[in-house]
Simulated assay, not measured.
Amino acid sequence: MTDGLLGPADVRRLAAELGLRPTKTLGQNFVHDPNTVRRIVKAAELTEHDVVLEVGPGLGSLTLALLPACAQVIAVEIDPLLAERLPRTVAERAPETADRLRVITADALRIDTLENPAPTALVANLPYNIAVPVVLHLLARQPSLRTVLVMVQAEVADRLAAGPGSRTYGVPSVKASWYGKVRRAGSVPRAVFWPVPNVDSGLVAITRQPSPQVEVPVKEVFAVVDAAFAQRRKTLRAALSGWAGSAPRAERILVAAGVDPTARGEQLTTEAFAEIAVQARKDHA
């Protein structure tokens, strides 16, 4: 039973109808396995009241699985051809859910806060080349999002979910954890995509939690994070010298924040980076 979901033959037929040749530029790898999209929807733990934001719906494989599980799907698609075809695909395969779909033809990195209704969950198969910027942008711009479940390149999934001290802990890990609790939510085999990508995929779940309460804008905290990881092998005293204006000032700020100047960025928690930004503001005052 496919429940109107798209199988391999359906995906290829739709692509042929549209004259579509998946492009690496847009990171287009379409899911053609009904069991995979069912699994993603189940992992998202949606309720009938959720408004789902889906980025890059493509031919509609995941969209068709999401619609019966929530109140509405807001699908953001950059490709006008795909955006135009999606409502028709839903009307043909799941007409009873067609009124729950809203399609926005736009670049997800350029959309501002969505309202009436505001999305409560981000569920998407994200183009690999923009996965991290999209997740961070939407968490920043959509305070209504309480949960995130995205399929990304396995390596990116590892980086997003990594904790302090891990070899893969870095800028994406710290920034994602600013918005909530991040965890790996499973792996996805290459064979469920068309065309088959040359990398493995993974699921990442984020549960929104209050960000650290600090008296500085988040952009100042993130500036510290960017500087700390720009030269991973350097101590924080050295890595932050350019950001602080000098190594002695960087050391002074670090000491005031309770951070060892000889430590490295991968050892620090999100809260520690926030405290460095706070002490830098005080030091400047």
Rank of each mutant, 00 (worst) to 15 (best):
V135R: 09
L139E: 00
A140C: 01
A140Q: 12
R141C: 00
Q142F: 03
Q142N: 05
P143Q: 00
S144T: 12
S144A: 13
L145I: 09
R146I: 04
R146F: 05
R146A: 09
V148I: 09
L149D: 01
L149K: 02
L149M: 07
Q153L: 10
A154R: 13
E155T: 10
E155D: 13
E155H: 10
V156D: 02
A157N: 11
A157M: 11
D158K: 11
D158G: 11
R159K: 13
L160N: 11
L160F: 07
A161K: 13
A162Y: 05
G163P: 09
G163Q: 14
P164W: 09
P164I: 02
G165Y: 11
G165F: 12
G165C: 12
S166T: 10
G170F: 05
G170W: 08
P172F: 02
P172T: 07
P172E: 13
V174W: 06
V174A: 06
K175M: 15
A176C: 14
S177H: 15
W178K: 02
Y179M: 03
Y179T: 00
K181E: 15
R183G: 05
R183L: 07
R183S: 15
R183C: 08
R184A: 01
A185N: 07
G186V: 02
G186R: 08
G186S: 09
V188H: 07
V188R: 05
R190I: 13
A191T: 15
A191N: 15
A191H: 15
A191E: 15
A191L: 12
V192I: 14
V192E: 01
F193S: 05
F193L: 12
F193K: 01
W194D: 14
W194N: 12
